[in-house]
């Protein structure tokens, strides 16, 4: 398969600089450890916030770290789409007899991000062990769906900002508000925020679908009906569909305007 070829090439390239890569991977994970330490100290001072305690927040951090770095690793081409346009590599993709999305996926795979992902999984496990959850089959399924939902929402955001970057001449920093903003709010169960903010991150960008709602389902608390919390991750996965449609429309515009 072509994708395994891409994967092999990226692996080969990265291995040329393995010492440097390992160092970067570890220091990147260090940033997150710093953040976890900060949140931990915050909860030392304040025992709970909005009814949630440290471990519940830790699970949320574990989830967002895992899904964000997984998506960053494999969908880096969308994340750095303006670079693809500037370097002319995107034009090159248009003259290859392979689907555009396939090529964008193949254009960049950043293995250093996997260190953060590993950290996210470790944090998730630590949190889950300490949360005293009454496990059953449904909860396991919802947990798995939560991670898949997280990846698809973040992927949708990457695709969306890649699409927007076709319209803006300069790659403006505030495009990151959507992606990084969604990331940072997801460090905590988002129902602790003001209502309008929580609503925005539920109905516009469905961060809640892999954050507060499945957390409610796992702990059996909260005001939202349990069945709704359980299916929320499935709804969240749909977010990427309009994003991809938007990107494909932007592509048409790219072909008629160029850069």
């Amino acid at each position: 398969m072509l994708y395994t070829k891409y994967l092999k090439m990226h692996m080969h390239s990265s291995f040329q600089y393995r010492a440097n890569m390992a160092f970067i991977a570890i220091t990147q994970a260090l940033v997150n450890i710093g953040e976890v330490l900060g949140v931990w100290m915050l909860f030392l001072q304040f025992d709970s916030v909005g009814g949630w305690t440290f471990y519940q927040s830790l699970l949320m951090m574990g989830v967002i770290y895992t899904v964000f770095s997984f998506t960053e690793c494999f969908a880096r081409g969308y994340d750095e789409f303006p670079k693809l346009i500037k370097s002319g590599e995107f034009d090159r993709m248009l003259i290859r007899p392979v689907g555009i999305h396939y090529q964008i996926f193949g254009s960049k795979i950043e293995f250093t991000k996997l260190a953060r992902m590993l950290l996210g999984i470790v944090l998730s496990v630590i949190a889950l062990v300490n949360m005293n959850i009454d496990w059953n089959v449904w909860k396991v399924l919802v947990l798995i769906a939560t991670y898949i939902c997280g990846c698809s929402v973040i992927f949708g955001l990457f695709v969306l900002s890649a699409g927007i970057s076709i319209y803006t001449v300069e790659n403006l920093e505030f495009l990151n508000i959507f992606t990084n903003g969604s990331k940072e709010v997801a460090y905590y169960p988002i129902n602790i925020y003001a209502k309008w903010l929580a609503r925005f991150f539920t109905f516009v960008i469905p961060v809640a679908c892999f954050n507060y709602l499945p957390l409610s389902f796992l702990t059996g608390t909260g005001s939202v009906p349990m069945w709704l919390c359980g299916v929320a991750p499935l709804f969240g996965m749909l977010f990427m569909i309009p994003c991809i449609i938007f990107f494909n429309l932007s592509l048409k515009r790219y072909k008629s305007t160029g850069t």
Binding site: D91, L94, I95, K255, S256, G258
Partner: peptide, 12 residues
């Protein structure tokens, strides 16, 4: 280069 891009299908 605009001509080349049209001929190679990059631009319409």
């Amino acid at each position: 280069s605009t001509t080349i891009k049209i001929m190679s299908g990059i631009l319409t």
